[in-house]
Write a protein that binds this DNA or RNA. Structure first.
Lengths: 226, 226
DNA sequence: CCAAAAGTGTTAGTGATACACCCATGT
DNA sequence: ACATGGGTGTATCACTAACACTTTTGG
């Protein structure tokens, strides 16, 4: 490996969650060179006999213990010089997850595993900071016209919890009445009979996502047309 | 090359133009195996010392004679079995061009070069038909909220020509008055003093794109918010 | 009865859509 | 004068955005 005149392929995973009303990303502390000791995205070399997505899931599981993520491809980056080992093309995937469902564990490649707020990232290996920012931007765009938010929530959730997810990712407050009106029109949620006690206040109704149409539920308005 | 246990990287180009009010894509007839004699997207192996985009531009130029395209990355595909030579990961770029600006020429790798309507594609090598369809879908989405249409037109164009580009890509007719109203609100065009004689009728005013903000000029309406 | 989050409608403004006629030119 | 594409405005409808009070619970 690492010969001159060869091109290598890696996969990297950007896994997001929400903690304390802030968008967090999962990082590992590298146990090996290059960039030993720095934080980085989970990822590694593609094996010739495995699919790209499988490789991304495998690296994520091996390095962090996280399973069953929904993956989406972000983009592929291969700038000369981005990896000191040689010419490395990396295919980047991102995913969202309810961190309550996740049990982290370290591994041989990853000395440490942890969530970091995207507003307070440590010094990162490679071009991973840029990749995280691009990835966050992508989900900010995508959350407005798809259902990806459900990945960040438990199966049953309240409308306030859902709104909070949107507010966190969009980084602004939303109007409660307008939000609920919109959610209603979309017919993407099932109203459950159960409620959730949130401490000492009025119990909130629980909802669940209808999984039939996972994309394009927030119908975009057309721009130039007529 | 083509050893087992290695992963190779190629780049492919999907270049679109409009001819006879139909979206066309540039294809080459393969002079070499695999799939010799079949039509395919221009593309080839990434050299270890060149950037991905440079490689895409080089292959495009070598195989078709086309220069100076604006490239955007579509996605990366690397399914096992998609290339009979071995494990090949391909990074796909797309671009739009005014075919009047293009002078096609064949090469050693490409026995023949030609534009094909996306509604009437020949039998294609690899998974290129799927790639072309995904790429067409991408520009259909993108044309509504960005300025990519200018790439398909000469520097000076009439509003009817611009509207025709939108109608072709969206595959539906647009209302002339609403279209012109929208275009006006956007402030992306410079009205020139010149006109264009279109045969024997009233001459049409010529316009040019203002190149300052190439993206996001067709401001999207927000979906879930408030 | 108090604190705190849950829940609920209306109005005004802005963008989208639908629609029909006159204008300038070459023959 | 006519055939052809160029060019223009208005009215309705749909979505967005702004805004405040009542309900339910535990302490």
């Amino acid at each position: 490996m690492y010969k001159k005149n060869l091109v290598f392929v890696t996969v990297d995973m950007v896994l997001f969650t929400i903690q304390n009303k802030e968008l967090h990303v999962l990082l590992i502390r590298r146990a090996l060179n290059p960039f030993r000791g720095l934080w980085a995205l989970p990822g590694g070399f593609l094996r010739p006999e495995e699919e790209l997505e499988t490789a991304a899931k495998r690296e994520l599981y091996e390095e962090t213990g996280v399973k069953n993520a929904f993956l989406a491809q972000l983009y592929t980056k291969g700038d000369i010089g981005r990896d000191p080992r040689g010419r490395v093309i990396t295919v980047i995937y991102y995913s969202l997850m309810d961190s309550a469902k996740v049990e982290l564990r370290a591994s041989t490649d990853a000395a440490e595993v942890s969530w970091f707020s995207v507003k307070n990232l440590p010094k990162l290996a490679f071009d991973h900071e840029r990749i995280i920012r691009d990835s966050a931007e992508r989900i900010r765009n995508k959350i407005e016209y798809t259902n990806i938010a459900f990945q960040l929530l438990p199966q049953k959730f309240t409308l306030s919890e859902l709104q909070s997810v949107y507010e966190t990712i969009l980084d602004r407050t939303l109007d409660k009445r307008n939000f609920r009106k919109k959610v209603n029109e979309i017919n993407a949620l099932k109203k459950l009979t159960e409620t959730k006690m949130q401490g000492i206040h009025r119990p909130a109704r629980l909802y669940a996502f209808l999984m039939n149409k996972k994309e394009s539920v927030f119908s975009p308005r057309k721009k130039i047309s007529g």
